[in-house]
Simulated scan of single mutants.
Amino acid sequence: MRSTKCAQVITVINLKGGVGKTHTTWLLAGNCEVQEFKVLAVDLDQQGNLSRNLMQDPNCKSTLGSASLFDPSQDVDPTQIIQQSKFPHIDFIAANSALQPLDVASQKEWEPADLQFSLVDLVQQVQGDYDYILFDCPTKLSLTGFAALTASDFVIVPLEPADWGAQGVEKVTQAIDYVKQRHNSRLELLGYLISRIKPRRQYHQIYADELRSRYGKKAFDTMIPDWAGYEQAVTHAVPVNLRRPNSKEARVAREFFAEVETRIREAQSGDRRRRRRVSKNGLTAI
């Protein structure tokens, strides 16, 4: 376990539903729980699926949640809406239908008011308390997604090994580049994660090979298979690493998390090298 915390902030985003976006966040949080890394999971999807799986009482209706961070009429201390989950190392901020009217799609409605910075204060306040902060975004490019990207260090884009599963990825990549250029220069695409793959289906393998060829090193080596153990873990609201730690599903989850950590280290190492080159050339490192 890390001795000094400075959270790695990761956004999980895709425009296509059913590609394993929330499940990816769930896997990351589950690995953190097992390894005793302190994690804050921020649910930005009004469906609240991640929230329900983390709540100590899933029937409890949260009155304050992530919606309050996007409502200019509310002066809410971000730390006051953080809840303790039923797992000792996972805290979360819940989402509910109150997000719907606030999560506008048009940049013309929120950029003039700088609402894309709505999550920056949260991160700055709690980054020293956690090892990871995870943003689970809705299946659209809207205020919440742009705000998550603006507050994050890294992005993971899950996608399904099918033609329709890759739809919208180009727009997500463009959004990442836009935020990096305009609002958050440290933002890095950690990689594209092929999820829900059925290894025995030839067309899934063909599409997976095509996606790996298309995205090269930006495609994760680890792929998340569409195995029953993952669905059962979600149904029982217990991460697979805890529910069945010796299962093949748990093994893949660990491999995925290890690759995430490796990619973060490589990205940070590359950033330090770039800064040294800038400084060596007599320029000011930004």
Rank of each mutant, 00 (worst) to 15 (best):
M1Y: 08
R2V: 12
S3I: 15
T4E: 13
K5S: 08
C6M: 12
I10F: 05
I13Q: 13
I13L: 10
I13W: 05
I13T: 08
K16T: 03
G20Y: 02
T25P: 05
L28H: 09
A29H: 01
D43M: 02
Q46G: 10
Q47E: 09
Q56T: 15
N59L: 10
S62K: 15
A67Q: 02
F70D: 05
D77W: 02
I82R: 00
H89D: 13
A98P: 15
L99H: 06
E109G: 08
D114L: 15
S118Y: 01
Q125K: 15
F135K: 04
C137M: 03
C137F: 00
T139W: 11
T144M: 12
A148T: 01
T150Q: 04
S152E: 00
D153T: 03
F154H: 08
W164Q: 07
G168P: 03
V169I: 08
E170Y: 11
V172F: 06
Q174P: 06
Q181W: 12
R182L: 09
L189G: 04
L189R: 01
R200Q: 13
R201F: 14
Y207D: 15
D209N: 07
G216K: 06
T222P: 04
I224R: 01
E231M: 07
R243V: 07
R244P: 08
K248N: 09
F257N: 05
A258C: 06
T262Y: 13
S269N: 15
S269I: 07
G270I: 07
R275V: 07
R276A: 09
L283E: 15
A285P: 15
A285R: 05
